[in-house]
Design a binder for these strands. Structure first.
Lengths: 335, 335
DNA sequence: TTGTAAGCGTTATCAC
DNA sequence: GTGATAACGCTTACAA
């Protein structure tokens, strides 16, 4: 490895002079600058950020910990994060936890040791463990998508409650009275808030006691299973509300298998737009989030914190959702 | 920040003793070990990997540079990379180039400065620039998905030629004589190889002179545009071969708009399975790749190189593809 | 079993 | 304008 000392020797100057050339700091005669630059070229010298970081206590690196990059929602969040970080000269390390708190904890340790300047975190299970650790270690972080009940920290998320409310209200207006919610894990705030919005809409319509709430994973298989269940129940719902994209797909598959026509026999609505990139013809009625925006805003907030470490009151940023009515929702079948 | 010196002072020992405790190296009396461990706990000491890396010249970090994490194919590759890296105690930095060689070059510089131990690279434009730079700098790397014509370096990719051959052969057997290939950029090896396989299948069927080859981007819009074009041409193809998933979706959309029925009026086949996760009912006939495997194998190869830096002959690993016949391909319409 | 000194590649500080 | 020195946090080699 060629170091600053090699360059210095070759150019016949001191290390400091080379350093000054590299960083454009202090005064340097045009002549020495050229000599140094030539030496750098000849030797193919590349500064070692590690050494630099050791001095500066700053790595220009942040991390994004999320549950599964395989979900297009998070993929888009990730793009928002990376693009924004790049604009500001930061690099990003990505980590998938698969909702495991242990994996999350392991990653956190590694990342802290690697001295990342800050973190963006989709907390596994909406648990406080990670956030608490980060606070103890004084590592700046911003929560994405989820928050932690009872803990006020920087976070950027969608207005899940309102989004769910609008979806269910839409169904109610179409005439549905038995609407089943197919939820994710009951402790995760996105599910909690969407259930709340769902209940609020039912309440308003005087349907509070007809609520049907299932919980499962944020996966297709889970959506499939929950759908089978509610179809077998009495009363059988005339509409399903999938709390995320994968659950809704599982539901549609189950319906297909059971020979239900959507929306004629049963309506389906969901959170998250499955980016139209993947579908020939989007047909799900959804409450659309802005994942790219979420990544972008979260990163901006984090970088602002890094630039100005004085503690300010935590910011909770709520991104609006947008109701998009498509073909998967219609009036309930006549009795 | 609490350092090893703080711990040493608190425990009343030297820095070295603390270091030995942390790394479980050398002999230490049970008693001092406990004292040190207690001090570590009390102070909340976390070792600084930066300092360690500076000494060891090793960061336990690799990078994955790809063109667009938003494409589910690459998302899955990324998962394969991360899972494998994690198993071996490595962290991963992700970078999207959007096919820009400049962005690629910038990232490369940053990553080299950050002293990543090695890189996995989907070369933008299949260009040699990046690979050449890495060779000069002696940074171990493995090419993923694409290779660089005329350059023999470690790489892991799908057997594009054979996959394309099988798809086109399938169409020929169904009776198609006018098959249009909707390609990506003409310099990218995945497109080149798929064109080759396409031509080989046509050749064998004596249809070589009926070949219709378009080039565009690996995007939906491009697939849409190319489809409009070939539909307007004479002879009008009875089958389309989309060279990747997004192109095929664009094609389907264009067909839909032009009121063509698939497969009755026209057949469509493509590379890349759009993970069934996204579709209620997969219906495209495809040549399926193994992106997770690609990430996994590539990472294993890279880590093997890191573990044993003696130069060996480059390995070129070709992953098989799998023809999956679904409903989007059928016999051509009767004249 | 434990400690001392030197060095990894940089840069801030203060001389010259 | 430029250079010597020390320091960032850690570990290897050698002593004690």
């Amino acid at each position: 490895m060629v170091t600053i000392a090699d360059v210095a020797k070759r150019a016949g100057v001191s290390k400091m002079t080379v350093s000054r050339v590299i960083n454009n700091s202090g005064y340097i005669s045009q002549k020495t600058r050229e000599r140094v630059e030539q030496a750098i070229d000849e030797l193919g010298y590349v500064p070692n950020s590690l050494a630099r970081s050791l001095r500066f206590k700053t790595t220009a690196t942040i991390a994004l910990i999320l549950t599964d990059i395989t979900n297009p929602f998070f993929t888009t969040v990730a793009r928002g994060v990376e693009d924004t970080a790049r604009e500001h000269g930061f690099s990003v390390m990505f980590c998938n936890t698969d909702e495991s708190e242990d994996v999350e904890a392991q990653y956190l340790n590694v990342l802290i040791q690697k001295q990342v300047d800050g973190l963006l975190l989709v907390p596994a299970c909406s648990s406080a463990r990670a956030a608490t650790l980060l606070q103890e270690r004084h590592v700046p972080f911003v929560l994405l998508d989820r928050y932690i009940p009872g803990m006020t920290v920087d976070n950027v998320r969608s207005d899940s409650e309102q989004g769910a409310y609008e979806l269910v209200q839409h169904l109610v207006q179409l005439g549905h009275r038995d609407i089943a919610l197919l939820g994710g894990p009951p402790q995760i705030t996105t599910t909690i808030d969407r259930v709340t919005g769902y209940l609020r809409a039912l309440e308003e319509a005087g349907l509070r006691d007809r609520a049907i709430v299932c919980h499962g994973g944020y996966t297709q298989e889970s959506g499939y299973r929950m759908t089978k269940e509610v179809l077998a129940a009495d009363p059988r719902p005339t509409a399903l509300f999938g709390v995320n994209n994968f659950i809704a797909i599982g539901a549609l598959r189950a319906l297909r298998e059971a020979q239900y026509q959507v929306p004629d026999d049963i309506s389906v609505v969901a959170f998250d737009d499955l980016s139209s990139a993947f579908l020939i013809e989007p047909f799900l009625t959804v409450s659309n989030q802005s994942p790219y925006e979420m990544g972008k805003v979260g990163t901006s907030l984090l970088l602002a914190r890094l630039a100005n470490p004085e503690p300010t009151t935590p910011q909770e940023i709520m991104l609006p959702t947008q109701l998009i009515v498509r073909k998967s929702s219609g009036p309930p079948p006549a009795k």
